[in-house]
C-alpha cells in the first residue's frame, strides 16, 4: 500500500461553465491533517464539492486518486463507501426523517458495499449510543429529525456525529468553525481529535486560525484564486494571522 491517500493533480473545475479551480495540486498521506486556508471566493468550498461529487460542479481536466482509485469516476455514494466524508458548511434539513433512520440507511448501505452483514437493530442502537457518548450528545438527539430546528452549533456537532458513525478515512471539514462560539468550537474540535487514528486523514477548510489552535494541522496550504499558492507547516497559520492572506504569494 502506498503512503498516499489522496492525490490531486492539476485539477481544473468549476460551476455553470465558470472555472473556479485553476490547476490545484495536493497530496495527502495517511494519518495527516491538512488545513486549506484562503480568502472568501478562493475556491475552498468548490474543492470540497468537487471531491465529493456534488452535482453541478464540472471537472474540466486533472486527476484525483483516492486510496489508489479514480475518485472522479465514482458516484457520491461510492465515494462515501470508499471512506470519504464531507462535513457540510450548511447542513441540509430533512423533515420527517430521524437521525436514527437517516444514519441507519447510511451505515447499512456502507456495510453492504463492504460485503459485511447488516447490523441488527440492537447492534445499531448500541453503536449510536457509543458514538453519542463519545461526542457528549444527549440521547434525544437520535430521535430528532435531521437538522430540523437545530442551532448552528448543533448542526455542526451533528455533522461530526455523522462522521463518527461513518468512520471515514478522509474527512473534509468545510468551514465547520463558521458560526460557532468558542465552546461549540472546542466540542467540535475535541470530537474530531478523538476520532483521529494513525490511518485517518482530514482536510480542514477554513479562513480563520481559531479552529487550528484546537485541531493542529501537519500541513497548511493557502488557496488563492483557484490555486494553491503556498504549502508549509503549521507555522504558516501564524504568518497568515499576523499578515493576512494578502502577504502570501507563493
Amino acid at each position: 500500500m502506498s503512503d498516499i491517500l489522496l492525490d490531486i493533480r492539476d485539477l481544473h473545475a468549476g460551476i455553470e461553465g465558470k472555472e473556479i479551480l485553476h490547476g490545484v495540486n495536493l497530496t495527502i498521506g495517511y494519518g495527516e491533517i491538512h488545513a486549506v486556508m484562503g480568502p472568501n471566493g478562493a475556491g475552498k468550498s468548490t474543492l470540497g464539492a468537487v471531491l465529493t461529487g456534488r452535482p453541478g460542479y464540472e471537472v474540466t481536466s486533472g486527476t484525483v486518486t483516492f486510496a489508489g482509485r479514480d475518485l472522479l469516476a465514482m458516484t457520491p455514494e461510492e465515494r462515501s463507501w470508499a471512506g470519504l466524508f464531507l462535513s457540510f458548511q450548511y447542513p441540509i434539513e430533512i423533515a420527517g426523517v430521524t437521525m436514527t433512520n437517516f444514519l441507519k440507511a447510511a451505515v447499512q448501505a456502507r456495510r453492504k458495499a463492504a460485503g459485511l452483514p447488516e447490523l441488527s437493530a440492537g447492534e445499531f442502537l448500541a453503536l449510536m449510543k457509543q458514538k453519542m457518548a463519545l461526542l457528549k450528545m444527549k440521547p434525544e438527539f437520535a430521535k430528532r429529525e435531521v437538522n430540523v430546528g437545530f442551532s448552528g452549533g448543533e448542526k455542526k456537532r451533528g455533522e461530526i456525529f455523522q462522521m463518527a458513525m461513518l468512520e471515514p478515512v478522509l474527512s473534509i471539514l468545510d468551514e465547520t468553525d463558521s458560526g460557532l462560539d468558542v465552546d461549540a468550537l472546542k466540542i467540535v474540535a475535541d470530537g474530531v481529535n478523538s476520532l483521529r487514528t494513525p490511518e485517518t486523514s482530514a482536510i480542514i477548510i477554513t479562513h480563520y486560525q481559531k479552529l487550528l489552535e484546537y485541531i493542529v494541522p501537519d500541513v497548511v496550504h493557502v488557496l488563492k484564486e483557484g490555486r494553491i499558492v503556498k504549502t508549509a507547516g503549521r507555522e504558516l497559520v501564524d504568518v497568515i494571522e499576523n499578515e493576512g492572506f494578502e502577504a502570501i504569494n507563493g
Partner: peptide, 8 residues
Amino acid sequence: FYMRSRGI
C-alpha cells in the same frame, strides 16, 4: 446530494 454523500 446530502444523503448520497453519506453513502445512502
